[in-house]
Amino acid sequence: MDKVVAGSGSQTVSRALNVLEMLGNSGEMGVREIARNLGIAPSMAQRLVNALARADFVEKAAESTKWKIGYKAFQVGSAFLSSVDLNAATTPELHFLADEKQVNSFLGVLRDQSVIYLAAVQSGGGITITNAPGSRTYLHSTALGKALLSSKTDEEAGHLLGPAPYKQLTRKTRRSFAALVKDLNECRRLGYAISDEENIDNVFAAGAPVRNASGQTIAALSGAVPRQKLSAKAISELCQTVKDAAARASRRLGAPG
């Protein structure tokens, strides 16, 4: 296999990894856009992309001059999932939510100061999933993020969130730490968190922690549906459904009852 290099030294490796991360987050990018984000010449960006393409880590997007993640990068990511029990524990629940309940379902983990999507399953409902595995999302505005933060102390959560005000995604986004703490306390009490049009307009999501045999939160499951015409009863049922799905996944991982 070709080595992923376009020069020499750790800086080149770091840039190549940055290219993969950018493509994982954005989906598709052109060479000039990659160069601009990395602060390098387009010719250098082209050499990086060519090297990654030769190793099948990136590939040309269909009918486009832009680039996207290749099958080899997906293969490496899949190896991470298959190396842990999390995949086996959560996959049935993700498909149960999507297929049986018509709820878009997601699996996420906490990395650095973001949520990383590990899986997303499209339902037959009215929301189209655009969150690819490996992409990042916000802690403060998502049900996944709140569910993951609920296992932390307020001090730890504050450190992960960073200084307020937090980025506003919609008119309902929680932007203060005090507002987020109230949501986290509710999640600790009820066993699930909600994002009521806080991350995307007209999307309601519920998320719940997934725990391992030690009782530690290692991931979170969430389900998302259109907010329009969603009754209080439907909201309650969705929250309980997501909570139960996360609890079943946790039991498969040996979590205490």
Rank of each mutant, 00 (worst) to 15 (best):
D2N: 09
V4E: 07
V5R: 05
A6K: 02
S8I: 00
Q11G: 07
T12A: 14
R15D: 12
R15N: 12
L17M: 12
M22Y: 01
V31D: 05
R36A: 15
R36E: 15
I40F: 04
P42D: 11
V49A: 12
N50Y: 10
F57K: 01
F57W: 01
E59W: 02
A62T: 09
A62V: 11
K66M: 10
K68L: 12
K68M: 14
K72M: 13
Q75I: 00
F80L: 14
S83V: 00
V84I: 10
L86H: 03
P92S: 07
E93V: 07
L94S: 10
L97I: 04
L97M: 12
E100A: 08
E100S: 13
E100I: 02
Q102F: 09
Q102E: 14
F106M: 12
G108Q: 05
L110V: 02
Q113V: 11
Y117Q: 00
L118E: 06
A119S: 15
A119C: 05
A120G: 12
Q122E: 08
T128F: 14
P133F: 06
T137F: 02
Y138R: 03
Y138S: 12
S141V: 07
A147H: 08
S151L: 08
K152D: 00
T153I: 01
E155M: 09
A157Y: 09
G158T: 10
H159T: 10
H159D: 11
K167F: 03
L169S: 09
K172C: 01
R174P: 15
S176N: 11
S176A: 11
K182T: 11
K182C: 02
N185R: 15
E186V: 00
R188W: 06
L190E: 15
G191T: 01
G191A: 01
A193K: 11
S195K: 03
N199F: 12
N199L: 02
D201N: 11
N202G: 01
N202C: 03
A205P: 09
G207I: 09
G207C: 04
P209Y: 08
P209K: 08
V210Q: 03
T217L: 03
S222K: 00
A224S: 13
K229D: 15
K229T: 03
S231C: 06
A232F: 12
S236E: 14
E237G: 00
T241R: 04
K243T: 08
K243D: 04
A245L: 05
A247K: 12
A247M: 04
A249D: 02
S250F: 01
S250C: 01
R251S: 12
P256C: 10
G257T: 15
